[in-house]
């Protein structure tokens, strides 16, 4: 986990994330990993006890993880949401907007460059789970 860049203040979760199948089979796990094709909604009954959900990106062009993240945040999940796999610098800003607050990329990313990439756009057009105020909302108070 040395490469993980976190945008959270809480303690790093020690327990390794288990595969979704294993998670559903055991009642006490608090960290789970879901693959691109897996349905994030099966986790909804367990959100209270989860403190880490890792979402894997097999290739950066596979965008299913963005929807998975949004669904989890929209459903009230507040624990760590970590993007892993083929996570590249230029995708991090969108991932942040979809609720990811930790990144564990296969190839390390310079944290300073990531910070710049994430903060580059001062405004946003959409309401997403990051709760930033969209431009239409600023326009109309």
């Amino acid at each position: 986990m040395g490469n993980t860049i976190r945008f959270r203040d809480d303690e790093v979760h020690e327990e390794p994330a288990v595969a979704l199948d294993s998670f559903l089979d055991q009642s006490n796990a608090t960290a789970v990993r879901i693959e691109a094709g897996e349905d994030a909604r099966v986790l909804l009954p367990y959100l209270d006890r989860l403190s880490l959900i890792e979402i894997d990106f097999p290739v950066f062009g596979d965008g299913r993880g963005y929807s998975a993240a949004q669904i989890l945040r929209e459903s009230g999940y507040t624990g760590e949401l970590r993007a892993s796999g083929d996570v590249l610098l230029d995708q991090c800003a969108h991932m942040r907007r979809c609720g990811f607050d930790a990144f564990s990329p296969d190839s390390p990313i310079n944290p300073q460059l990531m910070e710049e990439a994430i903060s580059r756009y001062e405004h946003v057009y959409q309401a997403t789970s990051d709760q930033r105020k969209p431009i239409w909302s600023i326009r109309h108070g």
Binding site: F60, G61, D62, G63, Y66, S67, Q70, Q91, A93, H94, M95, R97, C98, Y121, V124, Y125, Q126, T128, I135, W136
Partner: peptide, 14 residues
């Protein structure tokens, strides 16, 4: 147009 510009969830569609 505005909604779809830089849409974070829908920038890597199938």
């Amino acid at each position: 147009r505005q909604w779809s510009s830089f849409h974070p969830e829908f920038s890597y569609l199938p």
